[in-house]
Design a protein around this nucleic acid. Structure first.
Lengths: 202, 202
DNA sequence: AGTCATTTCGACGATATAGTCAATATGAAA
DNA sequence: TTTCATATTGACTATATCGTCGAAATGACT
């Protein structure tokens, strides 16, 4: 009786629904990477996705819910950029360095992503917090191992995040010089008092 | 004929007009220091200033013009914080250090000001550019004198501005530990490769 | 007290955006 | 081909904010 109906319902909806949902997220991501978040309107998203406004509301409660999902997706993409080899490294400074460089390189090669990161870091507490928390874990370890001059973990995080974010902004406004990522990394390591020789011994 | 009218006109208007204008700017400043710039509405400003909406439009073309003036005023207050003794210093690094510390101290003692600075740095190109340009002048000199490891002036500016801005943000979200400004300064100097002993000789 | 340039007021029309909903379309399964 | 759960549409209402304008208030000067 009801059984068949439920099965049908579940089966039919999935793919179509998921596709449209993804379309909207994609459109929202694109628009967010372009202008300021305040200018993100339901109509603009719907039009960019080639859908009617009502369809948007069938998939999301409101713009906030969409932005939240975009932010979440960005966070995951962030992890993708950083994770592959990172967990193999035993030294927390090495992990930080890897993440720092990787995300700058990604920003250079994908300015849309960079724009989104900068945008989100400014306006989405969740995103900023997540980045901060990850960093803080590494830094606490580094401090404990006596690998850093800076003793206040919060300050250390501010320094690293500050340099990273501002250099990323710079990438969006100027052409990135060849050695940018490595030079920025060296400066960041000096700042927290973890300067190391350039050649990482094997 | 017209002479008397013109004189009257000029004389009468001044004070009253200036006072109301200032009221509006003050209200706008307060609101900007509170929430995001997108939420700044003409009605909100008018109400906060205790005036009718029409009065706002008698003094400003639109919100943008108000925000622009607030930004300009902030820029001037910024100079006030920095200027008094700065020009007496011959060493560019000393000048940078002075400005860096002063503005962090100001942020600690006046969080409204800090909020405004952070806000403006993010959304007002003019403000960000002005800060950048001032810094770049000093940095170019420091590089020329061989006082810095970092050679790319743009990168040096990004590093200093990045740390400064992020530490300022930190001040707004956490309680500033006692030695914050000086520790942040030391980190910043290390970052650009201009570490100096703590005691500035006379 | 009267004059008049200037300033202030708030109602008003215009516009933009949010969110709703009844009607319609879609397409897999029977 | 028909059925029907699900998805899509766009017109509609509600609301927020903008910017305008004629009328009223202000207050320095006569």
């Amino acid at each position: 009786m009801a059984k068949i109906n439920m099965e049908r319902r579940a089966k039919i909806g999935r793919e179509r629904r998921a596709r449209t949902h993804a379309q909207i997220v994609e459109a929202g991501t694109m628009l967010l990477a372009q202008g300021p978040a305040k200018a993100l309107t339901v109509e603009a998203v719907a039009e960019a996705a080639g859908l009617a406004k009502g369809t948007f509301y069938y998939h999301f409660q409101n713009i906030e819910e969409l932005v939240s999902e975009v932010t979440g997706q960005l966070g995951r993409s962030f992890d993708d950029v950083l994770s592959p080899d990172r967990f193999e490294m035993s030294d927390p400074i090495a992990r930080i360095s890897f993440a720092f460089t990787q995300s700058l390189e990604k920003a250079i090669s994908d300015t849309g992503w960079a724009r989104l990161v900068v945008q989100s870091a400014q306006t989405r507490g969740e995103f900023a917090r997540s980045v901060r928390d990850n960093l803080k874990t590494e830094i606490a370890e580094a401090i404990a191992q006596g690998h850093m001059t800076v003793r206040d973990p919060e300050l250390a995080v501010d320094i690293l995040v500050g340099i990273w974010l501002q250099v990323t902004r710079g990438i969006l406004q100027r052409v990135a010089p060849p050695e940018l990522s490595s030079q920025a990394l060296e400066a960041a390591l000096r700042a927290i008092g973890s300067a190391r020789p350039k050649s990482p011994s094997p």
